[in-house]
Simulated scan of single mutants.
Amino acid sequence: MAGVRVERVVTSGVFALDGGSWEVDNNVWIVGDDHEAVVIDAAHDAEAIIAALGERRLTAIVCTHAHNDHINAAPALAEATGAPILLHLDDRVLWKQTHQNREPDSYLSDNQRIEVAGTELQVLHTPGHAPGAISLHLPALGAVFTGDTLFAGGPGATGRSFSHFPTIIRSIRDRLLTLPAATVVHTGHGDDTTIGDEAPHLEEWIARGH
């Protein structure tokens, strides 16, 4: 039996906020073993995610935040699999912009543990890109899933509604850059990075207001 592992599915669609829309590619992360898994950010294409899951039991659909491009496939995936949708309460206002008739099944809290395949994901509340943005630390594999909080090259965007640059900097400094340097950062869009690669640039990000 294979142990717990991380898989990426890239889906494409539209991100819409504040009256604008942009074509985007999203990283959908599957964490689990041969028998069960969780999905992090059900973006755009429920069928593609279901195909990647195969015969595995989906135990949770975890949302790093509630921008539409990270949650638009969540209800369809939940309906197909019976898995609950989990979101931080502070992002409920954003969730309702996309899904007015479907609530998340449960609201996440800081430091909560989500069990899967004999290991745990730890919820880190990392607001700034969105008020309820979270990251998920997976110590067993030396990994963290940061959604749109931290990318290869710097913080996520804070120029739109419900975002705040000083807050995202605090989240990155206090909750993410304190993780071991070798920790692999699995992002919401684009390539992986590591905590060690990003940590030296914190002051640069602050200086340029990213």
Rank of each mutant, 00 (worst) to 15 (best):
F162L: 08
H137S: 07
G159K: 08
P104A: 06
P155E: 09
G118I: 05
I114R: 01
I71F: 01
R113K: 15
H137V: 13
T146Q: 09
T98K: 12
A130M: 11
Q112F: 03
P84L: 07
G154W: 12
H88P: 10
V116W: 07
A74E: 10
P127C: 09
L77K: 07
R92C: 05
E120Q: 11
R113V: 06
H125Q: 12
F145A: 07
S135A: 15
G132W: 05
A152T: 08
L94E: 15
F162D: 13
G82N: 08
P139N: 02
V116A: 00
P75W: 02
A152F: 09
I134F: 04
P127Q: 14
H129R: 05
T98W: 00
I85C: 05
A152M: 10
L108M: 12
H88A: 13
I71A: 00
G159S: 14
D148E: 11
A130H: 01
S106Q: 15
Q100W: 02
L141V: 03
A74S: 15
H125R: 13
Y107S: 03
T149R: 04
R160W: 13
L141C: 08
T126E: 02
V116I: 14
K96R: 15
L94T: 12
F162W: 14
T81H: 04
Q112V: 03
P104C: 08
L86C: 06
L136T: 05
D91G: 07
L150P: 03
W95D: 03
L121I: 04
Q100Y: 01
D110N: 15
L141G: 05
A117R: 09
D148Q: 05
P139R: 01
L94I: 13
A76R: 14
P131D: 11
G154F: 00
R92Y: 11
H137A: 10
G118N: 04
L121R: 05
S161G: 14
A130N: 13
A157C: 09
G82L: 09
T146D: 07
Q122P: 02
S109Y: 06
P84T: 11
H129C: 10
H99I: 09
G142M: 01
Q112R: 09
H125W: 14
R113D: 05
T158H: 12
W95T: 09
L77R: 04
I71M: 06
S163P: 05
E115N: 12
A78L: 06
H129V: 14
L94D: 12
A117I: 11
A152L: 15
H125E: 11
V144P: 09
P155F: 04
I134M: 02
A78R: 14
W95Q: 10
P84V: 08
L138K: 00
P131Q: 13
P84W: 08
L94S: 10
Q100K: 15
D91M: 14
T149W: 04
A80P: 10
L136V: 00
N101I: 10
